[in-house]
Design a protein around this nucleic acid. Sequence first.
DNA 1: AATTAATAATTGACACTGTCAATTGACGAT
DNA 2: ATCGTCAATTGACAGTGTCAATTATTAATT
Lengths: 212, 212
Amino acid sequence: MPKILTADDVLAFRQRLCDLALKAFAEQGVEGMSLRGLAAAAGCSRTTPYRYFKNKADILAAVRQSQFQKLADVSENVAASVPDPGPRLEALARSYIKFAISSPDAYRVMFSVNQRDEQRYPELVHQINRSQQPMMTAVSEAIDSGEIEGDPSNIMHVLWAGLHGIISLELSDKLHMGRCFEELSEVMIRSLGRAIASNPSREAATYRVEEA
Amino acid sequence: MPKILTADDVLAFRQRLCDLALKAFAEQGVEGMSLRGLAAAAGCSRTTPYRYFKNKADILAAVRQSQFQKLADVSENVAASVPDPGPRLEALARSYIKFAISSPDAYRVMFSVNQRDEQRYPELVHQINRSQQPMMTAVSEAIDSGEIEGDPSNIMHVLWAGLHGIISLELSDKLHMGRCFEELSEVMIRSLGRAIASNPSREAATYRVEEA
DNA sequence: AATTAATAATTGACACTGTCAATTGACGAT
DNA sequence: ATCGTCAATTGACAGTGTCAATTATTAATT
């Protein structure tokens, strides 16, 4: 009888609008992500998105979920390609930083945009958890193998906080004195390695970075 | 002839509106910080604030500046009360965390609110710089006294990023163990101490970043 | 004390925004 | 060709930031 939207149609429109929303956010900031602007960019009427999303917060959650999914994908791939837990942690850290720096607006919309009722979007929460699972696993395995010691969750959060800290300082232009971010992030990775090492001097050797 | 606003009058109104704005932000989030709402809370008309502020972004900058000033004050006081650079660094770290946790909304509006053209407010920039000066000085003195070694700015940013990292993860409810924040922040402080401690392995060389 | 002129404060208005109700459009089965 | 149903659009409303026009206020001068 009537035209019925396929599940793929819905998915496609949602993804398209998410991409447009991220682009608008990148170009004009959070106030550029207006429903009317998005609809104009999508070539539809202003309220058409309401058939595919509950409201604006729902769109934002979908955008964030989509980006967390990307991050989770690359993290899982990196983790799968480095079997040894120690180097895997370092590779995960570098991959995390690379993701944030090469997609600064994605990272901003993932973290800096404060979504109060995040728990209301279980699919988003799931992708968030998935994105940090590889690092959690690597930490646990590194503890099991004796490379580091301590509480897995504590260590994992210290690592994550360190990475998230420099990234968000960089992304909000808080690094002054012409600090080159590449150097600083290397220092951070090295510092985190020393911070969680069971034997700092030995771990420093493990995490040594080639000098120029 | 006419009524002329004293400089103190202007300062008083600005401060009052800043306090109201922070309270509104704390109670209803960023969308609760509307000019009309603030004016109603202040008991004036909607456009009266426009005589004291250029626009809404100006109000936000004033709120942030006022809070950075508070942070700078407590940091300077802490720094003045602990002469030894090493313990002073630890005291500064604890004080920083305490400030953020006891005034979460102030911290949020200071950092999490993304203000694109922050450089346009030199008084805000000055308070931001002032707030991190004590830690910078302590790091430099700790290096001079041989307690730690490395590049002062690098170390200072690593410390700051570590603190800012756990704090922002906590404030955005990203920690799986929300009630154990005290423990986690202690772990972070200890980790940062180990990360920057003087150590046989060398620090502060220039590192090469490998491409992928 | 009345007048005056500059300044402070208010109101009107406009272009936005998110969102819902009512309406129109499109299309496959009958 | 008609009908029934979903999809899409338009109308409308409350709310926002902000500027122009207007009114109110007050301190010095007459």
